[in-house]
Design a protein around this nucleic acid. Structure first.
Lengths: 254, 254
DNA sequence: CTTGACATTGACGTTACGTTAAGGTATATA
DNA sequence: TATATACCTTAACGTAACGTCAATGTCAAG
């Protein structure tokens, strides 16, 4: 099926302006432009739009959505599982809100009392922290094709806020690491700062932080060419330098 | 209990900037400012903020929220009932979305097929029209103190979009009615246009439109001094003029 | 007495569109 | 064949609800 802009807008319950906007920011391009300059959308665009709307519904910004779905290894099926999980969480929160309404009604009718805390239960985006003790599959399974996949999946399970934080942190580490490397001393304040950042970064993916595991990962950075390549990209020898810094940071000179 | 800005922000899970914003637009003012110029919030503000957040959660704009809760006859208890109903509707929609995810997963796994329509079920703010056949209590109960209350309650049951539309329509009617009245002829194009607008307006509150009922209401506008006063405010004699126009519009010269 | 965590008022920035404006295109009907 | 109507286009400014500085003041603890 081919759709003009208004047909697809009606189908999805959005405005034509929104579709033009998505076109202009390269989030969703029509499959082709006809001889009159009209946008024409096809089946693939339908599915892509659906994904976009799911992410949007879950509070992701358009920039983030674009990043996610345009990745070469974007997996629509896995994304759908992600959506389901997140929608279920949202539903839980809605239930909490409804409970808060019920309580507030009962309070107004003089039946019960509420603390000020209780009056806002369900509004706060509850700490996923507590009930989401992700355990560190990364190291435990050693590395391999799976490892990288798994950690990408963890990305999808983050809120947008977390996602932005963690990707920014990763970038910062790259930059600071290259700077520190140029100074040459893995015991320097700069290098130790990088090691600390790396610990924070690791904690995103991996709840059970321990010095031993941190060191193991650091060594892996050197041994595994894929990781080494990533860290050496900005400045050669960075992977080894980072390992040394982390070894010192975790209290082991070598 | 008294709260500083950050305490209340943490309590409610919002930012201090948001609270300052609400202050500056007169949506939520602190109970007092202390000697250092700090905002201090009290119990009443807590409850008011809760109401604000409920409305916000339901997609109401801050302007609209301000209008609603600052009305002298704002009823917090009734509002809570409203919130509950709307939250339950929202939950229904979420269930629909989750169903859409499930189906989409099944489709990707080759188990079922989906139409393009189905792929977007749950995104569209479903027509409340269908399952919300409000019946016309206004006329049926004749008028009285209750009548006005009931129709105000209907306002709370509208989405923001509807609310804005209906209030704007009411204003437009006022203006156009005064203009048409000055022309003098209730059969004129202008007057008939007003009658048509009035029908649209009425349909917002009252699903079971009929010419008889429309005429009944028009007569009531003249007979009831409260209504007459409202319509005669801009231009004296407008209530009677409107009645005449509606009588003609509904096909009864007198 | 200074440090750090609070608070204040501007004021400009951002996101995701809404909303004209000015105009080209397709099709049904007079 | 004309014209009305319902589409479509780009361009550009508008808006809502804050986020994010910057510059500065206040308060409690060590």
């Amino acid at each position: 099926m081919e759709y003009t802009i208004q047909k697809i807008a009606n189908l999805a319950g959005i405005s034509t302006r929104t579709l033009r906007h998505y076109d202009s920011i390269n989030l969703l391009k029509p499959i082709r432009i006809n001889s009159s300059g009209y946008r024409i959308y096809g089946e693939n665009e339908i599915d892509k739009l659906q994904q976009i709307l799911f992410f949007r519904e879950l509070g992701f910004g358009l920039d983030t959505i674009k990043e996610l779905i345009s990745k070469k290894d974007f997996d629509p099926l896995y994304a759908l599982y992600h959506h389901k999980q997140k929608l279920l969480e949202k539903k839980k929160q809605l239930d909490l809100l409804i409970e808060t309404v019920d309580k507030s009604i009962a309070e107004r009718e003089g039946k019960i009392r509420m603390t000020d805390q209780e009056k806002f239960a369900g509004f706060k985006k509850q700490m996923l922290h507590e009930n989401e003790k992700q355990y560190g599959t990364i190291i435990r399974e050693k590395y391999g094709a799976e490892t990288v996949e798994k950690s990408n999946q963890k990305l999808l399970n983050m809120t947008e806020e977390e996602y932005l934080k963690v990707t920014k942190l990763a970038e910062d580490i790259q930059v600071k690491l290259a700077e520190a490397k140029r100074l040459g001393d893995p015991a320097s304040v700069e290098a130790q700062e990088v090691a600390a950042m790396h610990k924070r970064w690791l904690s995103f993916y991996w709840a059970g932080y321990s010095k031993e595991a941190h060191r193991g990962l650091a060594q892996m950075y050197v041994d595994d060419p894929r990781f080494a390549k990533y860290y050496d990209a900005q400045e050669p020898g960075s992977a080894a330098f980072l390992r040394d810094a982390i070894f010192i940071y975790t209290g082991k000179t070598k």
